[in-house]
Nucleic acid binder design. Structure first.
Lengths: 139, 139
DNA sequence: GTTGTTGCAAAGAATTTGCAGTCTA
DNA sequence: TAGACTGCAAATTCTTTGCAACAAC
């Protein structure tokens, strides 16, 4: 579980890293590594999937992108401020949501003696598009 | 994404299913399939890991147990009422937590046009044991 | 010139699946 | 006795890693 941080070696700015980062910034659909790989290839045809994985991990570690795990698969987003996600069970779409009162809830959890470092809320159901398609939401 | 439900065939009550279910009920540490397999083998030495996976999926589908995914790995619990989880980044322990105001937050999310079916809150950080061990919590 | 980074392919880890035999209802 | 379930092993899927060549600084 524990991850020891050496952090001694200095990172280099490679073309691959720049391109992958830009792809994530430009994507608003929470793409997977595979999707990012496809998009990055348009700019850098020789980039490899392994490199995409490595770069994504670096970027997330540096706090420049965020990783969201849905169905045991990593997705990434360029938005790094505090927010949460809604996942449509029908079409798989991931959408950002803001939640009120998170700080209050978090304080309640800390009262049990935990030190809370990260919070992750996920809401699953039907996005409005799919809800309408299924006739569940009318208006 | 979409999962079609046939649900025509009638389920049978096998010894394997009963044993796996009992193991989950008796475990309060949110075990993985592998752990459940090890525990079930004490009762049923010939049970296979594949069967454990199949039975766990069935039980979860029937709503008799709950699946929690942490680090892209499935864990299971016998407690099926509404609650959430705290995950210790240091020791990996998963603990149940209750959160207040969930209904209020959920209503806020639904105001955006989503139909919310499941809610999942995860809090990551240090459990009280590890926080004390690291000298972060004193009292 | 160092040494971090890449592309490639092979390895890993967790889970699922095909199949022939077995057991439940 | 029909067909659901099992054990086994092979297959899948997503991700990580070892290594020699490459490219930042």
């Amino acid at each position: 579980m524990e991850k020891l941080e050496t952090g001694k070696r200095k990172k280099r700015n490679t073309r691959q890293k720049a391109v992958v980062y830009q792809v994530v910034l430009d994507s608003h659909d929470h793409p997977t590594a595979e999707k990012i790989y496809e998009r990055a290839k348009k700019e850098l045809p020789n980039i490899s999937l392994g490199t995409v994985y490595r770069v994504l991990k670096d970027l997330a570690q540096e706090g420049r992108i965020k990783e969201i795990i849905v169905n045991k698969q990593s997705h990434f987003e360029g938005r790094t401020d505090f927010h949460h996600h809604f996942i449509c069970k029908s079409c798989g779409r991931i959408e950002d949501v803001e939640t009120p009162l998170c700080r209050y809830t978090c304080r309640k959890v800390e009262q049990k003696g935990y030190v809370v470092e990260d919070i992750e809320y996920k809401f699953y159901g039907l996005c409005s598009k799919c809800a309408h398609k299924k006739g569940i939401l009318k208006e």
